[in-house]
Design a protein around this nucleic acid. Structure first.
Lengths: 137, 137
DNA sequence: TCCTAACTTGGACTTTGTCCAAGTCAATAC
DNA sequence: GTATTGACTTGGACAAAGTCCAAGTTAGGA
């Protein structure tokens, strides 16, 4: 995480306490917080941080490629700090829990040229859906 | 499309002009409208149809398995009437255009048991991202 | 230690979606 | 055909998620 802040500073990011707190909140494995959750946790450490700043900072981290934005449920976007290792998502249809997973093979390879409609295809996001152990009937 | 309305009536759906219009608007290939777009097009045919009814009807069609809900952009959900043939989505990062595509192989098969975290995995949604011919630089 | 462009703030606003009480109507029965 | 009734629709209020902006604050270089 310190690496992250260092990397960003080298890229001309001004290192404010707000940005530091957002980066800290997003640290870890299998972290997929909504902007609101990030704001709630950031507020615990820095009570006066505003929603706008959280949104701004998340947007910047996404633009810089340090955080991934995932839309697994059609509701709030979630932010995934695990941007430097390619992975996909496994989502529980019951409780919404999300895990990072690593399927074998390159999902992109499965799309034949004839199915690309002239697009230059650069990425494939896979969302696996099912029930987690706690939600299984 | 008449098949759809017939099928729904057999399942006890009351066939109102509002529902008919929503079903008509959703007819076709590569159709991925937002609720708002459905409402706009429905209004052109039936001016007094309300937003609430469009949302209700879309929700019912999804629950009945006749329409798929897709969340490709973290903004408005989109509705895909092509629910009876398994497919995935190809999304243009430039303009947001969406195509239905049919990769070969079963994407589910690529997720090893060791990566399933005890989940009962039942589906895999793949979103391919790239630039469409019109958006390519 | 000063300066200034970059950053943050709070609040207003927009978009997307949900909920509800009251009114309307499709389909069945007669 | 007409009556009946429960299912459907409506508009408006509300909620959640996200954007925008003018004014105030501050990190980091000079």
């Amino acid at each position: 995480m310190n690496d992250l802040l260092e990397r960003l500073r080298e890229r001309g990011w001004r290192l404010t306490s707000q940005r530091r707190v957002v980066a800290e909140v997003l640290d870890g494995e299998h972290v997929h917080l909504t902007a609101d959750e990030v704001h709630a946790r950031a507020t615990a450490r820095l009570p006066e941080i505003s929603r706008a700043t959280v949104y701004n900072t998340l947007g910047e981290l996404v633009a810089l490629g340090e955080v991934l934005e995932v839309a697994t449920d059609g509701r709030a976007r979630r932010y995934d700090p695990n941007a430097h290792r390619a992975h996909q998502h496994l989502v529980c249809s019951g409780c919404g829990a999300i895990r990072d997973v690593h399927p074998h093979g390159d999902p992109l390879a499965a799309l034949p040229a004839a199915e690309r409609f002239g697009f230059t295809v650069t990425a494939a996001e896979v969302t696996y859906r099912g029930l987690c152990p706690d939600c299984r009937p």
